[in-house]
Design a protein around this nucleic acid. Structure first.
Length: 639
RNA sequence: GCCGGAAUAGCUCAGCUGGUAGAGCAACUGACUUGUAAUCAGUAGGUCACGGGUUCGAAUCCUGUUUCCGGCACCA
């Protein structure tokens, strides 16, 4: 007999060999139906795995997040089994559950095309009907090696395992897979799934190794869940910034001008100017000093900083001159280091915060280019803070708070915060262990002291130091780096930067790199998707469109009103076209202009306007002054 | 860069197995002179991404290139 403790502290004895399914059934039949797997203490148990020891149990039901993962993981196995039946030569890489579903990496001589997916799905359904039990087995490494003797990928994975750890394999019918589990116990538990796409993926994520074929899919407990998810995917396409950017004339990319080299159209540039102005003021208030440096720099400058050696392949080719080589600058910290070095600095001056709205060029891999999200020419507000060591914590935190405010003002949300640290890769990171330890230590401390939650990521640091990356999620579901604060002890060394301290001694400052809200390009892509193209008034390219009921009768009034708006710094536009009112309203709505103002006899007589907000059918009549006040308040509030 | 897919009018898209390109919107012209999501009629607009090939004949089949899309790798 074994004793099982439940989350509420109650205990019950069962015969050894009882399964989580049995335990759930013992409580209630309804619970059994909902149960997917269980944790016994910290160990994940499949629904049908016998429990041989006492412990605390926590049943995982369909409502729990882990359940989705387990279901999708099992569906990945089901996919593999079906693929193996249809493509007998198939060998398998990894097949995990991911955020919104699962994938499996497959090696086969055949090319699996999107049009083959329905056939694979049909085979998966057949296996579900067969009600194949999914059985767990623990084996010794040599046994595992024997079982997977004809599968080079699984063998390689076995080699990478810790020899001490027991290896688990899962059998479902004729299909056997190396896998940690847990699983749903029987293929009949899988019901509502869909295969979504095929793609290439490097074996072990290593671009020097072969590419496998990856099939993506998603699996749900209910039909509604699946349908809702598929609907979400359709909606995401609707808010794709590339589509909205074209519709709203925000930007264009023409291969004649160059791929990855976007052109800002008047509407987009207006928004960008608002953002630039906003950021400039924000930084002024926070004590940043703005400056400007050239788009071209000598190769030597980037050799001193070390960027050239590290990133040469990702920079545009060197421009050769008679006795000097130039590069299109990929970043601006070396210039700012020179500015710091241009005068003798006192400890009293620090921190010195230099900010610059700067255009940078990076030769991004062609396959990485994506609308405005990933480009080869980008403009951003870049800042470098030169500080004393005793100022690090405060300055990093100040930068973090500024980022928080900007993200908040823009109506965005931080998804999570990452602390990127180095790993043992000697090639990738500068070699001074002492500097690294000190820098990483102080970053951990300041985040902990400020109570900021973060995930540590080994091996993700910049070559010169650790960084705090602030991640946001795009409407298309990608997580991307929005902002960054990076601690750098290396560059001040390389540029031999010094200041004079209290005792008259020369000291090395530290450099804090700060990216506020990514580049204007990427920010625009995020904002477009966030707002579905319907910008808040403070950002909208056109804030109000003025429409006369009759162009002949009310045209002049509308024109005068427009000038009044412009004089107050507002962005308005008049529509004097010979069209029906309904047509003009529709046109303004289609362009997602926040306010449509209609002026007819009544308004003309009383200095009024009748407005209609984007997305609303309600009409409100106000005096022009009252409306202007309302609009200006809304702009101040950044709504 | 790598794997797979796609490319037809300014935009969104149709064009079956090869027979020589079409719709809606936008544009232009004219009429209508308007109170909250499309007034009516007409006109013009295409090296079917680009190059080569197969064929009596290619948007359609084959092939190379370019760009874009979905991923992977990369992201100072």
């Amino acid at each position: 007999m074994i004793e099982i403790t439940f989350p509420d502290g109650s205990k019950k004895t069962f015969n050894a060999g009882v399964t989580p399914e049995d335990i759930a059934r013992d409580i209630a039949e309804g619970l059994r139906k909902k149960t997917v797997a269980a944790y016994l203490d910290e160990e994940l148990y499949d629904l049908n795995r016998p429990i041989e020891r006492s412990g605390s149990i926590r049943l995982i039901t369909k409502d729990d997040e882990e359940a989705f993962e387990i279901l999708n993981h099992s569906t990945a196995h089901l996919l593999a089994q079906a693929v193996k039946r249809l493509y007998p030569d198939a060998r398998f890489g990894v097949g995990p559950a991911i955020d919104e579903g699962f994938y499996y990496d497959i090696a086969t001589e055949s090319t699996i095309k999107e049009e083959d997916l329905p056939r694979i799905e049909a085979e998966m359904r057949r296996i579900i009907k067969e009600q194949v039990p999914i059985e767990r087995e623990v084996v010794k490494p040599e046994e595992a090696r024997r079982r997977f003797a004809d599968d080079p990928y699984k063998l390689e994975m076995i080699e990478a395992f810790d020899e001490e750890e027991p290896i688990t394999i899962y059998k479902q019918g004729e299909f056997v897979d190396l896998c940690r589990g847990g699983h749903v116990g029987n293929t009949r538990h899988i019901k509502h799934f869909k295969l979504l796409s095929v793609a290439g993926a490097y074996w072990r994520g290593d671009s020097s190794r072969e590419m496998l074929q990856r099939i993506y899919g998603t699996s749900w407990f209910t039909k509604e869940g699946l349908d809702q998810y598929l609907e979400l995917r359709r909606e995401r396409k609707e808010r794709d910034h590339r589509k909205l950017g074209k519709e709203l004339k925000i930007f264009m990319i023409d291969e004649k001008a160059g791929k990855g080299l976007p052109i800002w159209l008047p509407n987009g540039y207006t928004v960008r100017r608002v953002l630039e102005d906003y950021v400039y003021r924000l930084e002024r208030k926070a004590g940043y000093l703005h400056l400007s440096t050239p788009v071209l720099g000598t190769q030597q400058l980037y050799e001193i900083s070390g960027h050239f050696q590290h990133y040469r392949d990702d920079m545009f080719p060197v421009i050769e001159d008679e006795d000097e080589n130039f590069v299109l600058r990929p970043m601006s910290c070396p210039h700012h280091a020179l500015v710091f070095d241009s005068e003798l600095r006192s400890y009293r001056e620090l921190p010195l915060r230099y900010a610059e709205i700067v255009t940078q060029h990076r030769y991004e891999a062609s396959g990485a280019l994506t609308g405005l999200e990933r480009v080869r020419a980008m403009t951003l507000t870049d800042a470098h803070i030169f500080a004393r060591k005793d100022q690090i914590k405060e300055e990093v935190l100040k930068a973090y708070r500024l980022i928080q405010q900007a993200i908040n003002d823009l109506g965005l949300e931080i998804e999570y915060v990452e602390l990127a640290l180095r790993d043992a890769d000697k090639e990738k990171f500068h070699p001074d262990d002492e500097l690294w330890d000190e820098a990483e230590q102080v970053m951990h401390e300041l985040l902990d002291e400020a109570g900021i939650e973060y995930e540590s990521k080994r091996g993700e640091a910049a070559f010169y130091g650790p960084k705090i990356d602030i991640q946001v999620r795009t409407a298309l579901g990608h997580v991307i780096t929005m902002s960054t604060v990076q601690l750098d002890f290396l560059l001040p060394e390389r540029f031999e930067l010094t200041y004079v301290d209290k005792g008259g001694e020369r000291r090395r400052p530290v450099l804090i790199h700060r990216g506020l809200v990514s580049t204007w390009e990427r920010l625009m892509s995020i904002l477009l998707e966030q707002y579905k193209g319907a910008f808040p008034v403070w950002l909208a390219p056109i804030q109000a469109r003025l429409i006369p009921v009759n162009a002949d009768v009310h045209g002049e009034t509308v024109q005068a009103l427009h000038e009044r708006f412009i004089d107050r710094g507002l962005r308005s536009e008049v529509d004097l076209r010979e069209e029906k009112l309904g047509y003009k309203i529709r046109d303004a709505q289609t362009q997602k202009i926040p306010y449509q103002l209609v002026i007819g006899d009544k308004e003309q007589e009383n200095d009024q306007i009748t407005y209609r907000r984007y997305g609303s059918k309600e009409e409100v009549t106000l005096t022009t002054d009252a409306f202007l006040e309302m609009l200006e308040q809304e702009i101040r509030d950044k709504h």
